Amino acid sequence: MKEWLNPNNIVELAQHYKSLGPFLGLLLPFIESFLPFLPLVAFVLANAGAYGLWYGFLLSWAGTVVGSYAVFLIVRKYGRNRLLNFLTKSARIQKLIKWVERNGFGPLFLFICFPFTPSALVNLVAGLSDMKKKNYLVTLMAGKFVMIFMISYIGSDIKALFTDPIRTAIVVVVIFLLWIIGKQLERRLNAKVEADFRATAASREEK
């Protein structure tokens, strides 16, 4: 374990990753969009460490945007198919769809900005909603830009993370704060969805 945590070994591993070519750096974030249990943060850090801040950022950003938008398009086309109608049966999904249709860009942008919020759920809900394709693409590109750049900046100097304790502490604090903020945002979103749903139900009963 100590050998793997050695800064020189980390840098050497990043160089080996780089030698595999930029296609892998593009492919891994793309695949993560379809398999959300994969560690997107780790892929972005690896790209930034291997290719540098800007090139690594572009590879990660392009891969995750294309992958997420592909998931959105697939759900948009086949999500209401009989074979996939289980996607729309969930009461939570139905509430989220209606909420997204009413609120649009702003909430989705904030949701996508944070690396620890369920982006797969966002792609699913957006795909099942009536949100325009162009609007979602713009939202996705903007939100992922912020998220991927934050992670890429942290990972652009991997060696410093192991040799500079102050930088390491700052990185740990930033990641923890992003996780906390993302979870708070998710809770508030769920609360707003429930409140809107109850208000809509109450107004229908009054009519």
Score class of each variant (00 low, 15 high):
85 N>Q: 15
178 L>I: 01
164 D>C: 07
76 R>M: 06
176 F>E: 06
173 V>D: 04
143 G>M: 01
130 D>T: 12
132 K>Y: 07
89 K>H: 14
129 S>W: 02
102 R>S: 14
161 L>N: 07
107 P>C: 13
110 L>D: 00
100 V>S: 12
111 F>R: 03
90 S>Q: 12
119 S>Q: 14
128 L>I: 03
104 G>T: 09
71 V>M: 12
114 F>V: 04
159 K>S: 13
90 S>V: 03
72 F>D: 08
167 R>M: 10
107 P>L: 09
120 A>K: 09
162 F>E: 06
157 D>N: 13
173 V>R: 05
88 T>N: 11
159 K>Q: 13
117 T>V: 12
148 I>P: 00
172 V>F: 07
170 I>T: 05
143 G>I: 03
144 K>Q: 05
170 I>F: 11
150 M>L: 15
167 R>D: 02
71 V>S: 11
76 R>F: 05
143 G>W: 00
176 F>L: 12
93 I>Y: 04
119 S>D: 15
120 A>S: 15
99 W>K: 01
182 G>A: 04
142 A>N: 09
172 V>G: 07
91 A>R: 15
114 F>P: 01
149 F>R: 01
74 I>F: 15
178 L>E: 03
111 F>M: 08
79 G>V: 05
114 F>S: 01
99 W>M: 08
159 K>V: 08
135 N>G: 14
154 I>M: 02
98 K>P: 09
164 D>T: 09
154 I>R: 00
155 G>M: 04
145 F>G: 06
85 N>A: 14
98 K>T: 15
140 L>Y: 02
71 V>P: 10
109 F>V: 00
77 K>P: 14
80 R>N: 15
149 F>I: 03
140 L>P: 00
138 V>M: 09
164 D>Y: 10
95 K>C: 07
176 F>C: 14
140 L>E: 00
170 I>K: 12
107 P>M: 13
151 I>H: 00
104 G>W: 09
182 G>Q: 00
128 L>P: 09
130 D>P: 01
116 F>A: 06
93 I>L: 01
